[in-house]
Write a protein that binds this DNA or RNA. Structure first.
Length: 451
DNA sequence: ATAGGGTTAG
């Protein structure tokens, strides 16, 4: 029912014959996307009676995540045309995130200033968002500067925000920069276990386990107690760096020292051995885990199923999947994605499709990864009809095609795996379909790819 | 949004 309504809103001519949308974020997002230029009087009329709440606004913003300019238009529209509604801090944070991802810094800063004038922020979270954008777009120095200047925007630095900026730098692989800042300011902020864990994890992320061990040692020397998170981080680091023997010894040491090793420890080892192709040891550790009374989580099963797909056989992965279901676990979107990928990788497309149907029947919505991965496999095998079928299905559901989807489809046009004739026919079908869809999308695709 | 485990293929 909901889907039918969404579809009718999507396919109606832009701006014409639109009924007021209910407080349904999916319907509102589709309505916004149906406007090719700016939101106009028609939209004002359509949303006059909509009961706006921060939750509703946030849902709409999240649905428009891959259509950033539209999302910002919507945010500003509410600010300007519904004067009785005032945005919540969480909505500002989302809008700031979107503007920062689009690198529209004047908008980022005007939103920050507006937050301040409304006395609802900016909060440390707001700064974390902006810093993360700076760090991941090659501007770690601007991220650091932002942290150092936070207080000028009414937001004082504390240990938590210090730990956050270090984590942001580490997660975007700017570990040297994080380490520098850490050494300069650890005294001023009284670095704690979390601070050290962030730095240990940073070195592990770039596979520099000797540096991670050095920080671990330093931590102990300074009287900061490592905890299970520290050890699990280090263990994961060894696996990531391909140091399987060291990982195993570290794991044994953890047990010898009576660490209360937990589900995260075991999942790390199951995954680590599996990725290294040591399926037998993966099984042994999984059995040991159950023997020791540590309950596997859905993540443990996901790790196991994934490595069975990659390093063993997809049939064994299916067995493990059925076992987890039998034991009462509820597979999540990751579980399905991993197994569907395994089936597709093995060329078992129809079984992959069946599993997708099953996930939907179970109420687990396919996401971008599900669709994009399936479309990629179909495109690579010149299964044009199948790829387009999924693309169409995306367009009518809650998970709209994003830029990656278009990229996958377009690169699919250039794949040559079958006879030249098939490729030409496939290309024509793709080109025709993409042009048709782009005309519905208001020219976004045309501008992006100059088709 | 102060820290640790599970999602692409190349």
């Amino acid at each position: 029912m909901k889907r039918l309504l969404s579809k009718s809103l999507c396919t109606s001519a832009a701006g014409a014959n639109l009924k007021p949308p209910p407080a349904d974020p999916a319907a509102i997002a589709k309505l916004i996307l149906s406007f090719h230029q700016t939101l106009d009087d028609q939209f004002i009329l359509s949303t006059k009676t909509t009961p706006w709440t921060p939750n509703l606004v946030n849902s709409v913003l999240k649905r428009l995540w891959n259509h950033g300019p539209k999302a910002l238009q919507f945010f500003h529209f509410l600010d300007n045309h519904h004067r009785e509604y005032v945005h919540d801090a969480s909505s500002f944070d989302l809008a700031i995130d979107i503007a920062a991802r689009l690198h529209i810094h004047p908008t980022v800063w005007s939103l920050i200033h507006r937050m301040r004038s409304l006395r609802i922020g900016p909060s440390p979270k707001t700064f974390a968002i902006v810093a993360e954008r700076y760090a991941s777009s090659g501007k770690p120095d601007k991220a650091v500067k932002l942290f150092l200047n936070m207080h000028e925007h009414g937001c004082f630095q504390d240990l938590a925000s210090f730990n956050t900026i270090l984590d942001v730098l580490c997660k975007s692989k700017r570990v040297e920069k994080a380490y520098e800042l850490f050494r300069a300011l650890r005294g001023r902020f009284s670095a704690d276990t979390v601070t050290y864990n962030v730095i240990v994890n940073g070195w592990c992320l770039i596979k520099r386990t000797p540096k991670a061990l050095e920080v671990l040692k330093e931590m102990v020397d300074r009287g900061i107690n490592p905890n299970l998170t520290t050890y699990n981080t280090m263990l994961q680091g060894f696996f990531r760096a391909g140091q399987i023997r060291q990982a195993w010894e570290f794991f044994l040491e953890m047990k010898k020292r009576n660490c209360e090793i937990d589900v995260v420890t075991y999942t790390t080892v199951v995954h680590g051995f599996g990725v290294a192709g040591e399926i037998k040891r993966t099984r042994n550790v999984f059995d040991e885990m159950i023997r020791e009374g540590v309950l596997p989580s859905v993540a443990t099963y996901n790790a196991f199923i994934q490595v069975l797909c990659k390093k063993d056989s997809v049939e064994n992965a299916v067995v493990m999947f059925e076992e987890m279901v039998r034991k009462g676990y509820e597979p999540n979107v990751t579980t399905y994605n991993v197994l569907i990928r395994g089936l597709f990788h093995a060329g078992k497309f129809s079984r992959g499709e069946e599993l997708m149907q099953r996930m939907e029947n179970e109420g687990c919505e396919p996401n971008f990864q599900t669709y994009n991965m399936m479309i990629r496999y179909y495109s690579e095998c010149s299964e044009v009809e199948k790829a387009l079928g999924l693309f169409e299905k995306m367009g009518t559901g809650d998970c709209l095609p994003n830029l990656d989807t278009y990229n996958i489809l377009i690169s699919g046009m250039f794949v040559r795996k079958r006879s030249e004739d098939m490729v030409v026919a496939g290309n024509q079908a793709f080109a025709k379909e993409i042009l048709r869809l782009q005309s519905k999308s208001g020219g976004r695709l045309l501008r992006k790819f100059r088709l």
